[in-house]
């Protein structure tokens, strides 16, 4: 969806409500879900986060200016929801069953995945967010800057530091193995 189309849809949403909003929302739901999975590592919680983000986006659509791209705005809300979920008491009592996909994978790969996710969780929220956005969602740094509300320079810096920490932690766990 081009920026112009999205801008027209934003106007349409204000005039015509929900139907246009769904058209606006649909293309960004899957990226939002990937971001939430990348941040939370729990698909069910990620779905909850995206649902909550969609509701908030609906209520706060007035803050999105015509012509302003939907994706970074929505991903920013998803990132916030993930942050809220991680910080709330609700998160601490979640007992989701382990994801089934890893059962057919070699044990080394499973272990490697667990270690990497563990390392990712330990590098700090702001750095984790830019790492996931850049390396997992494949977003350019200027869009990440819009999502995180910071400068391109700050994003690049966080990305470098995040990757450095991630590499260090992984290498340490590789040595232990």
């Amino acid at each position: 969806m081009s920026g112009q189309d999205a801008g027209a849809l934003v106007l349409a949403v204000r005039e015509d409500g929900d139907v246009a909003f769904e058209r606006l929302l649909e293309p960004v739901l899957q990226p939002g879900y990937r971001l939430a999975c990348g941040m939370l590592h729990d698909p069910a919680a990620a779905e909850d986060a995206v649902q909550q983000a969609a509701l908030k986006a609906w209520r706060k659509l007035g803050r999105l200016r015509p012509g302003e791209p939907m994706r970074p705005w929505f991903l920013g809300i998803v990132a916030n929801e993930c942050r809220n979920l991680q910080r709330s008491k609700w998160w601490s009592v979640l007992k989701g069953a382990p994801h089934e996909q890893s059962r057919d994978m070699p044990a080394d790969a499973v272990l490697g995945g667990i270690e990497l996710r563990h390392a990712l969780r330990s590098i700090g929220e702001d750095k984790r967010l830019v790492v996931v956005l850049h390396w997992y969602l494949d977003l350019p740094v200027d869009e990440i800057a819009v999502i995180t509300g910071s400068s391109v320079h700050a994003v690049e810096s966080r990305l470098r530091r995040g990757m450095h920490e991630l590499r260090r932690r992984l290498e340490a766990s590789d040595v232990e193995r």
Binding site: E22, Y33, G38, P43, A46, V50, H99, L120, W135, L166
Partner: peptide, 28 residues
């Protein structure tokens, strides 16, 4: 590092075919 990262996160990102439907249903 990137390929390991992507593989590790793909493990916890199963397809969510009902997501669009569930979000719309929640809004409705």
């Amino acid at each position: 590092l990137q390929s390991r990262l992507v593989a590790a996160l793909e493990e916890v990102t199963p397809e969510a075919p009902w997501l669009t439907y569930s979000v719309k249903a929640s809004l409705a």
